[in-house]
Every structure is written in structure tokens, then in C-alpha cells.
Amino acid sequence: MKALDNVSLTVKKGEIHGLIGETGCGKSVTSLTTLGLLDNNAIIRGGNILYKGVDLLELKEKTLRKEVRGNEISMIFQNPSTSLNPVYTAGEQIRESIVLYQSNDKEEAQRLVLDELDRVKLPDPEDVYEKYPHELSGGMMQRIMIAMMLACNSNLLIADEPTTALDVSIQAQFLKVLEELKEKENLSILYITHDMAVISEICDVVTVMYGGQIAETANVHDIFNNPRHPYTKGLIHSVPGVKLNIEEFETIPGTVPRLINPPSGCRFHPRCEYAQKICKEKKPSLEHIDKDHFVACYFWEEVK
């Protein structure tokens, strides 16, 4: 199964980069590959993952663990309750990363934990410190995860569907925390989601993935106002909120392809209204069409 095929994307310093796609398009595999967290049966056939100029693929597991994961790049997952240890309090778990990365002094570590809890806008940090994960709500747990990441002083955060399990009001609060961290601390974030509305809410740059390949990359305004890939366009028009009336909803015919035996040429062509003979025969390459706008489609000029 070719989970990823020729995926290139760049996350700049202090930027929130959104990675969007439907189930099975390879967005989570992209993030796991970055951190070297893939299962043993995964084979990386080629390519580079450059972080501050260093190719992460060439680093040894030990170096990755000691010098990259945590210190430089952190990751948070969809379900915070499975990422936290149920038998330690929230404070103890954050303190662990502080002791590892910042300070050995017990009292200072505790003080730093409280600072971190305050930074992610958790009310009453002393109280939260003593709480076990089951005593916290989903939104609070997700903020604990962020605090843990901040405690390692990471520069890049990979967030894989971090708000899918959260309610809208909690999601909005959580996204505000991320935005503030970006503004104040120049944190870079790779934000993975299937939710177009969340993408429009916090991202600066958006990459759309389809069937293990990149369909389009552009800044968030261009993606929403001037989409050039038929898939991006279909995705946006099937999101409730763009069209307010059910009759105006557009749908993308067919379903997401299986990557074991993907369609030839452009993987989107069986579902595409613009598809022609060439789309079936030859895979389109990512074309540079405007300042920061890239699209992999032969007929991008016709997509309106």
C-alpha cells in the first residue's frame, strides 16, 4: 500500500499550517513519519524530512528520542484521555517533561508546571495540578497535553485532530490558546484535521491531501476564495456553512480510493467533473501557479 506518494510541504517558523483531507488520505501517516513513529512494517522509499536543515530520516532512533522528540518537535493526538497516564496526576505528568528538559530541582519544577498550566489558560492551576486525568474534562486534558509540550520548549507542534473529541465552545477556547502561542511565542504548528471550518479558523497556510498525494497548497484565503483543484472546490462546497440551503449543497460523487490499488494517473479523476483522457494516463505534478499557490491538476485554469 502506497500511503504517501511524493508529499512535500513546508512549515515556516511561527506559522500554522493546516493539513486537510478525508479518511485514509495519508494525513496522519505524514505526521507520524515526521517524528519517526511509524510501525515496523512501514518502509520509507525515498525523500527527506528536513528540520532546521537536518534530515530527520538519517538520525538514529536514540538521537531522535533524545534530541528531536520533545525538545524540538512535539505531537498531540485526537483523544487526550489515551495520551495521559491514568495513575499519575496532571501536574506530575507535566513535571516529568520539565525534569527531563529544563530543571532537576523539585520545587522549581513544580513552580514551572504551574506556570505552564497558567500559560494554557487553565483556571486554578494548583487545583488542576493535583487532579487525575479522569477528573478532568476533554478540553482540560487537551490543554494539559499542550502544557506538556510547552514544558519541553518544542519549536514545532504537530496536532493530529486535536479538537475532534471536543465541544464547540471548548474547541473555540482551545484554538484561541493555540493562536496566542503562535503570536506570543512564535510557535510553529502543523494542524491536521478533516474539518474545513477549523482550518479557516486558525490556519495561515493550507495543504489539501487526496489519496496519499498533495492536491493543492495555498494560503488560507486562496484556498477558500480561489480553490483551483476540483477536489478542494468540492470539499469546500460540501461543508455546511458555505451553502446555507440543503438544496445548494454540492456533493463529490464516488468514494475515497483505497490506496492498495489506487486509480491510475490523477487519483481524483474517477470522481472529477473536469477529468479528461490525460488525467487517467499521467499523474499531474504540483504546479506553481501563483505566489504561494501550488496545485496538482491539468485543468486548474478551468476550475472556478
Binding site: S137, G139, M140, D167, V168, S169, I170, Q171, A172, Q173, L175, K176, D195, M196, A197, V198, I199, S200, E201, I202, C203, V220, H221, F224, I236, V239, G241, V242
Partner: peptide, 24 residues
Amino acid sequence: KGLFKSVPQPDPDKRVKAPLTGEV
């Protein structure tokens, strides 16, 4: 009011300004 204001809209020009505070 607070709930509707917290809902992200698929439009980068309309971002959430003042979401609901607190939790249920």
C-alpha cells in the same frame, strides 16, 4: 449567542472573536 459565536465558519475572513468561556 455564545454557542453560535464559538462555531468556526468555513470562511477565513470570519474568525471567532469571543468564544464562550468556562465549561458545561
